[in-house]
């Protein structure tokens, strides 16, 4: 029997069961908190930091996707300060790699593009890093363009938690961090990849794509997203 906590988010009285995250309760109550690494149905990582919220009495910001609700909590999900942080994070996601929307397979159906638009990120103040990164097109069906990867790690989690293959993981650190297949083997040489395509389906940008798709002709994904994954995840108690 679960306990129900009452709390306030952005001044609105809401209730959430014990163990629910601030993000879940906020969304159930129509309060939208931007996210990028979060995806219903796979575990949360708290990696992108877009969902950071203020909790009264705490000097630190907390990721809404990783923080459980508690009785009497006073949460601020939207403030000038948070908006400024979220814009800065979005900007950093862009400048860290080479995002060229005009010639991207995901143009006009990209979550990063949508996020920038929603938050009003219209320009970059930070210098672009322009790293030289690779495209791995060795897989017969799919390819990864690291230029467009934002390291949300959805691919890593969906491959591990839903498909059970754990082909994807991460390597290196800091700016050199990359998602990788099978300890750095070329994707096409991966003995574990089942070619199920889940990683491509969950990728928020054009980093993972079906080969042969022309620019702006990536799959238009329906929202809400892959509802069956939530069912699988719940069955597994994730």
């Amino acid at each position: 029997m679960s306990t129900v906590h009452t709390l306030r988010i952005d001044g609105k009285d809401v209730a959430g069961s014990d163990g629910a995250t601030i993000l879940e309760v906020a969304r159930e109550n129509g309060i939208d908190i931007p996210t990028m690494c979060h995806l219903d149905g796979i575990s949360d990582r708290g990696a992108c930091r877009l969902c950071m919220v203020e909790i009264a009495g705490s000097p630190k910001l907390a990721p809404a996707c990783m923080t459980r609700v508690a009785e009497g909590m006073e949460v601020t999900a939207h403030s000038e300060r948070l908006l400024e942080y979220r814009r800065a994070i979005t900007e950093m996601l862009f400048v860290e790699r080479n995002h060229v929307c005009a010639v991207c397979v995901a143009n006009n159906h990209c979550e990063l593009q949508d996020l920038a638009e929603d938050l009003g990120v219209t320009h970059f103040d930070l210098p672009r890093i322009n790293p030289k990164v690779e495209v791995d097109a060795s897989h017969p069906l799919f390819a990864i363009d690291h230029n467009r990867c934002i390291l949300c790690l959805r691919c890593v989690r969906v491959c591990d938690e839903i498909e059970g293959a754990h082909t994807w993981d991460i390597m290196h650190r800091g700016l050199d961090t990359r998602v990788q297949t099978d300890m750095g083997l070329a994707w096409g040489d991966s003995p574990t990849c089942t070619s199920c395509g889940k990683c491509v389906q969950v990728c928020p940008t054009g980093a993972l794509f079906e080969k042969g798709r022309a620019v702006a002709r990536g799959t238009r994904r329906p929202r809400p997203f892959l509802p069956w994954m939530r069912v699988v995840a719940e069955e597994r108690g994730l």
Binding site: A102, V103, V105, E134, V135, A143, D145, K211, G212, A214
Partner: peptide, 14 residues
């Protein structure tokens, strides 16, 4: 150089 060839129509259009 280094781009997937399917992008060529869109890139060279530029």
């Amino acid at each position: 150089q280094g781009r997937p060839v399917h992008e060529m129509p869109a890139i060279t259009a530029r």
